[in-house]
Design a protein around this nucleic acid. Structure first.
Lengths: 187, 187
DNA sequence: GATTTATGAATGAATG
DNA sequence: CATTCATTCATAAATC
């Protein structure tokens, strides 16, 4: 599922030949509409339904898919935010204290708590991932990785067999049958 | 998604240098294992214990933490789900008011009436990647794009396009302030 | 025609 | 689990 068939988008007379383009490019009408939504209406958080609506509508102006609309909004938002961040520091050396009263407290509180070091409380529904005080675990022979002599990659498990399983854990004996998923390093 | 023309994950054990790369990127072996688990074995809901197991095993193929495994599964699940959901028809009957500069409903900044959408909200990105050769829909009056009868967009699609046209007819009249942004076509 | 820029696309990470 | 943010890769288009 790479960049599938998003071909044949034509812009206002500057289209490419068929077969050479794979990346969607908004046609002028599409761009106009999208920008209108974003800037004029301040419409920046379209729900999936709205995305589909928009996409459906934009289809008459050229090939387009939902994900194009989605990405368009995402990228625009991200890049606007990015630009703002870059300007946070006034590059001028002049002492410009612009205290115009407006307590522009940008409440962009993204309480970043990067405390993901060891254990995380990913469990959202409270069913998984408990806080274990000790990171003590004796998984040597993992049930997930059956030691048939080779693991998923075909590498030999040189580790000790024996299986000191832990009680309570789902003992899923998944054996990966090493299916290449087309995942290779194509440099 | 199996996009292969992207990252150049380099090594298999020397990733994430200090300070330069803070974001984990799966090494090819790691990816292969993870995909094998997910797709091959249908293993999509790892418990915390299993996450640790997986992580432990993946460690021999590069730096990795539990949270990486966790996020990987979460993201893949979420995005796969999105894809499926996006195929469904849009049930919206809601009216996303999209009047740029017309119908002065400019009371609030975000005067979009996105209250209709309960909370359905499913993904909107990877829409349809599969074979969808020729489906094109006959849009008419979308609630999102109220037609006022005038075609301000004036897409000169009938002009010297010289290619396969946009296909759709311009029956939607979306009144945009065309001069708002100056660049509708930066091509 | 190689370099830079703009932007579509992908995905890891995070939040609620 | 759904949604959003941040960062990065990839590439068409513009620039030199």
């Amino acid at each position: 599922m790479e960049q599938q068939t998003q071909q044949q988008i034509e812009d206002g007379g500057n289209n490419q030949a068929a077969g050479t383009n794979n990346r969607w490019a908004p046609t002028p009408p599409q761009l106009r509409i999208l920008k209108g939504l974003y800037y004029d209406k301040g419409f920046k958080y379209p729900t999936p339904e709205q995305i589909q609506e928009i996409c459906l509508h934009l289809k008459q102006y050229g090939q387009i898919e939902d994900k194009n609309v989605f990405f368009w909004f995402q990228n625009l938002k991200a890049r606007e935010r990015q630009k703002l961040k870059e300007f946070r520091n006034v590059p001028v050396g002049g002492s410009l204290d612009l205290n115009f009263g407006s307590t522009s407290s940008t409440s962009t509180d993204r309480s970043i708590d990067l405390n993901f070091g060891s254990r995380v409380g990913y469990g959202a529904d409270g069913s998984i991932m408990e806080q274990r005080g000790e990171y003590h675990q004796e998984i040597e022979t993992l049930p997930l990785f059956p030691m048939h002599g080779e693991d998923i990659l075909g590498n030999m498990k040189t580790t000790s067999e024996g299986g000191s399983g832990y009680g309570g854990g789902s003992r899923i004996s998944l054996e990966l049958s090493l299916n290449s998923y087309g995942d290779a390093d194509m440099a």
